[in-house]
Computed example of a mutant assay.
Amino acid sequence: MTTRRTLLGAGLATPFILSSMAHAQGSSQTGGEAYPNQPIRLVCPYPPGATSDNVTRVMARALSARLGQTVVVDNRAGAGGAVGTRHVADSRADGYTLLTASGGNLLISPYLSDVGYDPLRSLAPVAMAGEAYSLVGISAALPVKTLPELIAYAKQHQGELNYASSGIGSTGHLRGALLAEAAGFEAVHIPFPGSAAAVNSVLAGDCQILIDPVVAPHVQGGKIRPLAVVGTGRWEDFPDVPNVTELGIGQEWPSSGWYSLFAPAGVPQSVIARLNAAYNDALADPEIALALRRLGLKPEPVEPGQLRQRLAREYAASGVTLQRLRITA
């Protein structure tokens, strides 16, 4: 039997029920105010010690402070960054599994093998940590002090020099091949499982050349000699080192390099916006910006749409370059 008390109770409960339903619907469809309500995994597709790993750890701490949730770094290396990238692409599109991406795993690896993801469709651009600089570094035992001297030496010793990289399909692999092509010499590519192993090979004298930001501290320590900077303009930490473009090389190279944040395709736009705002806010923090600059980055806040356009443009350019250089896995 329906009583006056039953009707009164139902009437009082109705606004609460409707409000709860609306909140649940908003959270499930857009990420809403509930995001984030659990720890976030930030995947680095390269091993510890690589520049990608260092950038990931800096930004994980920055995001944790701004999102109010722990951001855990998850290193999933392998196949030139493809293993970790595919893991994120295949993850649930809820914003709790994210990726630190760079040129190697998005612009190069997909052309060299069946990586299991499409960089333009399987991932959602979120934010950019910044433009990345690299140094053309050489073994201190090599009897050259400038890039023109290296080119002349390499031409006199065709095929005798080794250039290291963080793996087949890495940015360092492509840049080494581009340098050899532009300068007209032959060198042997030696891939390693990550930048840390690659720089150790140069320190040991097994390889003579490495184009990577990871050489920077070894340059400052006098163990590796810097010949040129790859990136936009000069690297402020090495103001006396010329850019390769000043030496007539690299103007047509497909990408200056960058590190960015991506999510699985299909993540709600409200979540993308929340992450982008937190990431860009971190870049405005002087301490975080300084930490990134020390890693060879020039912090650059961008919107997701800008990053999507840049990815599409540079992905197409990388494909043309790889075909011309006949680089294969």
Rank of each mutant, 00 (worst) to 15 (best):
P226N: 09
P242W: 05
P213D: 09
G231S: 06
Q220H: 09
P226Q: 05
T232V: 14
P226Y: 04
L227A: 04
G231Q: 03
W235F: 14
Q220N: 00
V241N: 03
V230A: 05
D237F: 11
G231K: 08
P239N: 12
V229I: 15
A228Q: 02
I211Q: 06
L227C: 03
K223V: 06
P217R: 13
V214L: 15
L210T: 00
D237N: 09
V219C: 07
P239L: 15
L210V: 01
K223Y: 13
V215A: 12
L227H: 04
Q220T: 10
V219F: 03
D237R: 10
W235Y: 15
P217C: 05
E236N: 02
K223M: 10
R225M: 12
V229T: 15
G222M: 11
L210A: 05
G233S: 04
G222K: 13
V230N: 07
Q220D: 04
G221S: 11
V215H: 14
A216K: 13
E236L: 10
H218G: 00
V241C: 07
W235H: 05
D237P: 00
V229W: 07
W235I: 05
I224G: 01
H218K: 10
G221N: 11
G231H: 09
V229R: 12
P217D: 14
P226H: 06
R225Y: 08
R225H: 13
H218Y: 15
L210E: 02
P213T: 13
G222Q: 08
V214Q: 07
A216P: 02
R234K: 11
G221L: 13
V229M: 11
T232L: 13
G231N: 06
P226F: 12
V219W: 04
G231A: 02
P217G: 09
I211M: 09
D240I: 00
Q220Y: 08
D237A: 15
G221I: 14
A228R: 03
P242Y: 06
P239M: 15
P242K: 03
P239R: 15
L210F: 14
V229P: 01
A216Q: 15
I211T: 01
Q220C: 00
D237I: 02
G222L: 11
P217E: 12
I224H: 14
P242M: 07
H218N: 08
V241L: 05
V219R: 04
P239C: 07
V229C: 10
A228Y: 12
R225I: 06
Q220R: 05
L210G: 01
L210Q: 04
P213V: 14
V215L: 09
A228K: 06
D240L: 06
V241W: 02
L210I: 06
L210N: 02
F238W: 11
P213C: 09
G221D: 13
V230P: 00
D240P: 00
T232Q: 12
L227S: 03
P217T: 05
V230R: 08
V229K: 09
K223E: 13
V230S: 09
Q220W: 13
Q220I: 13
V241R: 07
D240K: 05
D240Q: 08
G221F: 11
I224A: 10
G221T: 10
V214K: 10
T232P: 00
P217N: 12
G221E: 12
T232D: 12
I211N: 02
R225T: 14
E236G: 00
V241S: 03
P226I: 14
L210Y: 06
W235P: 01
K223D: 04
F238L: 08
